[in-house]
Design a binder for these strands. Sequence first.
DNA 1: ACAAAAGTGTTTTAGATACACCCATGC
DNA 2: GCATGGGTGTATCTAAAACACTTTTGT
Lengths: 237, 237
Amino acid sequence: MKKSTFRKHLSVDCVIFGYDESNNKLEVLLIEQKDPALRTAHSYRPQFAIPGDLIDESESLDEAATRVLKELTHVEGLHLKQFHTFGDPMRVKQEKDKEWLAFYRSDPDARVVTIAYYTLVRKEMIRPVPGSFAKNVVWKNVKRVPPLAFDHNLIVKTAIEDIRARMHYNHIAEQLLPKKFTLRQLQNLYEVILNTTLDKRNFIKRFKKDEELIELGEKQKGVLHKPAQLYAFKTSR
Amino acid sequence: MKKSTFRKHLSVDCVIFGYDESNNKLEVLLIEQKDPALRTAHSYRPQFAIPGDLIDESESLDEAATRVLKELTHVEGLHLKQFHTFGDPMRVKQEKDKEWLAFYRSDPDARVVTIAYYTLVRKEMIRPVPGSFAKNVVWKNVKRVPPLAFDHNLIVKTAIEDIRARMHYNHIAEQLLPKKFTLRQLQNLYEVILNTTLDKRNFIKRFKKDEELIELGEKQKGVLHKPAQLYAFKTSR
DNA sequence: ACAAAAGTGTTTTAGATACACCCATGC
DNA sequence: GCATGGGTGTATCTAAAACACTTTTGT
């Protein structure tokens, strides 16, 4: 049986947003590319990239994205959203990426089209582990994403635009907050993703009207101010 | 130089919606696949498909979609929107598609991922010509799309959902109506795309408020009822 | 008592919806 | 004069926005 050439040309890339509730920061998970072992010492600068991989011939696009997420974070069951496909013929032909490609790809000159996904996770729920291509794994604030490999800056930017536009449709909050949470926690999450500030009375009115929340009748403990009521999401959704 | 394998595995498909103003119908452009010349007479049934093609190694995704549209319709300058990528490993492995693939593809068993685009055109503005793969070209009402090759029914369905969701953002109407048009023509267009009926007073209020229309001071002629005012779009957009 | 954040309601504005009658033309 | 679709305004409802003071707890 002839070896397939499918795997040379298609990849998935995952923009993994991590929500850090305690600091109310929205961050994106980056890998630091491994040094090519054969590098010429003066020329190579490690680059950051978003996690991704070539797609195996037997797996679907969604499965490939799920696999990339799982290999990096050991997390399963999160919804990954396909949001755009990037296929500029030059996207993997830039000088900055040549050395890494030469070492890690069987066909470094092959044109690669990538199908991009994003997901959101609670940062403290995962402990990312560098996979085979990564030397290191770091979180970076979405407002300060460094220069990335390939066209990954464009991919991250597009993901942020998409997530903001869909914030109210996707029920994003559910997977980003603990089971029991205060209204302030919910509002903080919306504010950091939308990069804005909201009026708390108006904000709460929307959720009360939509009947998406259950008032638990419990209160915060040990805070040095009036303790807040705890809420949970209706699970029916 | 080694022959590239890129072209085996990636395609674009275009959902071309045609607006037939005189009947207020929204249709989709389908090609009827050419019979494989070597077919066994009893087994082959021509199938409809949406136009598409493998992507050349040197062209971008958008360029490939533009090329497909141009080859079929000789129309350029329309906006094609990338809306989803379909890559199920089995999407080109169904029995119904085997014979056509065997005849028209250099590697009929290759897995192909397709990046899907849609656009909207005035039906009477184009005279589609069957290209190299097509025996025939037909318009079908979006409400009565026949069974299509590959996963093309899913692609068309997804395109319709996307276009409805974006109707108010994309300024779709501009390329689907003549330069001078009546408010009724504009409303008909919205109604057929959204598959609903609208109140004409309320409908017009939105456009008046957004100041998107210019009242031309001309009137329809030769109609057997009160002639309607003609409008044009503000060109600034 | 003080600091800190929680909690709470009303008013205003804008947009969406519902609804019915007269008008200008061709025949 | 009649058939046809064009053209028009108001009242109601709902959603969004603006806005400030009191309450509860820990220290």
